[in-house]
């Protein structure tokens, strides 16, 4: 349970605000970090911590793109394909990336390692094509660079599985 395992972090989150309810987004991040995604049970757990109805936790989780109510791949790749990035080849980059990983738009690879999605503007328009992988930015990409990164991530996942 989050309350026992992360008592200090949770206390620190609540100490920022005069109202516990304000901590809900930080707690959803914490829960997602712990469980990988936000299940019904997890949302109930977070709601109870913040003294809100589980329905409220649901609506918050569904409103934002960085919360996921479904399991994602180990590496969650979100490629910006908005206009400024698309003018610098992001659409083509995205299609080639999907083809390389053999997934459809928004899909997850059969080994469960990679989920590939399109995402709205990430404030990195001058460094397109770019993507966010598990919330970290990778910029000025092309297929050669991303293939190298994918190899690194695969090796990293293998190593973690072996440990």
């Amino acid at each position: 349970m989050l309350a026992e395992k992360y008592a200090d972090r949770i206390e620190k989150i609540f100490s920022k605000y005069p109202d516990k309810r304000s901590g809900i987004m930080d707690l959803l991040y914490l829960a997602q970090e712990e469980y990988g995604w936000l299940s019904e049970d997890t949302l109930r757990e977070v709601a109870a911590l913040c003294d809100v109805d589980p329905t409220q936790a649901h609506s918050i989780a569904g409103f934002y793109t960085m919360f996921s109510e479904k399991p994602k791949g180990t590496y969650w790749l979100q490629v910006c394909t908005d206009l400024p990035c698309a003018l610098r080849g992001a659409d083509q980059f995205y299609q080639e990336l999907c083809a390389y990983l053999d997934v459809d738009d928004g899909g997850t690879t059969s080994d469960g390692l990679f989920t590939v999605e399109q995402v709205m503007c990430l404030a990195a328009c001058d460094k397109a094509p770019m993507l966010q992988c598990n919330f970290h930015y990778y910029e000025n990409l092309d297929m050669d660079i991303i293939k190298g990164l994918i190899e690194q991530w695969r090796a990293q996942a293998q190593q973690e599985a072996a440990e």
Binding site: S22, M25, C50, S59, F67
Partner: peptide
């Protein structure tokens, strides 16, 4: 001074939506 992290919603750049989001309400 505190930091509050959003979670991916353009509308939260609108000031009153931002305040709602910070309060743990829908943005």
């Amino acid at each position: 001074v505190h930091i509050h992290l959003g979670a991916g919603a353009y509308i939260c750049g609108e000031e009153s939506a931002l305040l709602n989001s910070l309060q743990g309400l829908l943005g």
